[in-house]
Amino acid sequence: MSKFHRLFRRKYCYSSNKAKKIKDDCPYTRYSLAICIIVILIFGVYLFQVNGITKTGYKLRELEDRAGELKLVNEKLEIKTAKLQAISKIKKEAEALGLVEVDNIKYIGNNDVAIASVK
């Protein structure tokens, strides 16, 4: 007979009248009860941890979605800026403002390099 059977054998562990006798005659009952409690506790901790991780995971996903939305908004603004700063558009607005092209530029001074020495 295996240990497994001995743990659950009724004849030894569940004699109806004498609790003390049960205790003395059934050390396996205590062990098995302890193992069950430990397993249940471990399972409980695991559930708690998984739940916490899942909650954090949802929060992370919300933040990722928000980051994605902001990135999209940023891209749209960049495109809007590029359209507004197209040089053909700027030229039209410059003409509307009455700005004229530069002509007849006069350069003041020359390109000579001045070198001074201190004695």
């Binding site: 999209l72 891209e75 749209k76 960049e78 495109i79 800026t81 590029a82 700063q85």
Partner: peptide, 14 residues
């Protein structure tokens, strides 16, 4: 003055 002075002449719009 955006994107290190890089002006896009071909880009992707959503």
């Amino acid at each position: 003055n955006i994107n290190n002075n890089l002006y896009p002449i071909a880009t992707n719009e959503k």
